[in-house]
Write a protein that binds this DNA or RNA. Structure first.
Ligand SMILES: [Mn+2]
Ligand SMILES: [Mn+2]
Ligand SMILES: [Zn+2]
Ligand SMILES: [Zn+2]
Lengths: 133, 133
DNA sequence: TTTTGTTCTTGACACCGTCTAAATTTAAAA
DNA sequence: TTTTAAATTTAGACGGTGTCAAGAACAAAA
């Protein structure tokens, strides 16, 4: 795992304490945090960081392809540090969003869709995560 | 097409002028209206109807299975008068949501997903609708 | 009719994300 | 160094979305 400073420099984004705090949380996250989640956690390292800066930084990272915004929750977008193609499973009870590897599922029939030029797609599944022992 | 009064009675929902206005618009819609869309159109027939009543009615219809809420747009849910299983294609340029028939696509590999009990799923595709002559 | 209880509707409120203008920090020029 | 310019951050305001407590309307009971 590269550190935040290296990542920001490699993308041509000037590193600031605020941006470093945001990157350190969101790119290492294994969940799908909302902007509010990122704000809360970033303030532990950088207590004065503002909501606007968090949004600016997250949108900058998304524009650079380091993360992807996903429309999976009602009312708010979530930020996904896994920017590669994959599917999602959403737990009915908890709302937790799980990544499903791209290779786990196959979708057939896309090529037959006339009138639609598909740029990207994903399967969204909902249900319950079974108890693990 | 049954009229709103009949539909409401058959579902055991007491018909009121507000609910009739909502049902008349949303169940006949061929698009995927937001609550705001439904509010605007309902007020043409029932000018005093409030936002809260529109939400109450839409959620009631969803609970009865007459429509389905879908998380497809940023910032707002949309209400789908097509409550049967189907997929969605979202136009990058316009944001318009198109229904893709269930039979058009097939998803394989779900049965191999251990730890996940799938209740429902759909494919969400994004891209451009090609020009139609 | 009056009282009581239930259902329905609504205005007010909280949350999310964007925008602006001012303040701060950093960098470049003189 | 001092001055100027550019980039970044911040607080607060704003518009849009969805929820809630309280009042209005309605129905049942007395
Ligand atoms: Mn969260
Ligand atoms: Mn709309
Ligand atoms: Zn993901
Ligand atoms: Zn649909």
């Amino acid at each position: 795992m590269n550190d935040a400073l290296t990542i920001l420099r490699r993308c041509g984004i000037k590193p600031t304490p605020q941006r470093i705090a945001v990157v350190n949380y969101v790119l290492k996250s294994t969940t799908h945090p909302t902007a509010e989640d990122v704000l809360d956690h970033s303030r532990k390292k950088c207590p004065t960081v503002s909501r606007a800066t968090v949004y600016n930084t997250l949108n900058l990272l998304a524009a650079k392809g380091l993360l992807k915004t996903q429309v999976l929750k009602e009312g708010t977008v979530v930020f996904d540090p896994n920017a590669r193609q994959h599917h999602h499973f959403i737990d009915d009870d908890t709302g937790v969003i799980y990544d499903i590897p791209w290779s786990s599922l196959a979708v057939s029939g896309k090529e037959k869709l006339r009138d639609y030029e598909v740029r990207e797609y994903q399967v969204i599944l909902r249900g319950r995560r079974t108890k693990r022992k």
